[in-house]
């Protein structure tokens, strides 16, 4: 197979700002950012709670969330499909094959990543942080927020990892989004579709964008850590 020609075409598409390509890229970023913005606050709050408090069923909850980490995204898609399909319990909402369905799927996928990373970051915090804050007269809530601020690089890593996971996710997005052009077709689903059609140029172009995004995010992370995240 000649790889040079589709690669050349891919860069040509990127350089001339192909409208269809840009629309797919924009939709992917928009759906991923929306999902991460919506699910991050409750997930981080739950992560802090699981890390700092002891309550009945806490261990079970941690194990359940950890188990969700290894769930195939296509299974998440299947469950959501069943819930959102016309005969499902939430069928009346008519969300299936809509951008909102993809956002919900992304939120489900990002949730365990955010919770587990937050638990790990907060448990790994220096115990003197909370104690020092309390000793200086901070309320319990303020001391907890100070702890979160001190482990902010771990929290940012959680958010970035979750974003990286959802923006490159294909199984759930295809199942609940339907890969509808102009509505729910995002970068991974477009790559899968175009490759199956033998049109490699657009797939390569979107692959390059995905990899550039991943590289960019990791460079930003490294720069942030250089400012004080690395101990």
């Amino acid at each position: 197979m000649d790889l040079l020609e589709p690669t050349r075409q891919a860069f040509a598409l990127l350089l001339r700002g192909d409208p269809e390509l840009l629309q797919i890229i924009w939709l992917s970023i928009w759906l991923s950012v929306t999902a991460i913005l919506l699910i991050s606050p409750p997930s981080i709050a739950l992560g802090v709670l699981l890390a700092k408090r002891r309550f009945p069923g806490q261990r079970v909850l941690v194990v359940l969330v950890q188990a969700l980490l290894s769930f195939p995204t296509v299974v998440v898609g299947l469950v959501l499909y069943l819930l959102l399909s016309r005969r499902g319990p939430f069928g009346s909402l008519e969300l299936l094959f809509s951008p909102a369905a993809i956002v919900i799927g992304y939120m489900v996928i990002a949730f365990p990543i955010l919770v587990v990373f937050t638990v790990s970051a907060v448990q790994g915090a220096d115990p003197r942080v909370y104690e020092t804050a309390r000793g200086l007269g901070a309320s319990g809530k303020r001391a907890a927020l100070t702890t979160l601020w001190e482990v902010r690089f771990g929290i940012i890593a959680a958010v970035v990892t979750a974003f990286g996971r959802v923006i490159s996710e294909v199984g759930c997005a295809i199942m609940v989004g339907g890969n509808i052009e102009g509505l729910t077709r995002n970068m991974p689903t477009a790559i899968a579709l175009e490759t199956s059609k033998g049109d490699f140029a657009q797939g390569i172009a979107l692959g390059v964008v995905l990899m550039a995004l991943a590289l960019g995010i990791n460079i930003v992370m490294a720069l942030l850590q250089g400012e004080g995240g690395l101990k």
């Binding site: 003197r128 942080v129 104690e131 020092t132 804050a133 200086l136 901070a138 303020r142 100070t146 004080g228």
Partner: peptide
Amino acid sequence: HQHPYLFHTSVAGNIAYGLKA
């Protein structure tokens, strides 16, 4: 503390912490 913990902010920010609280 014997080995005091200083927050990841400036020296002045550390000194101001309790006043802010």
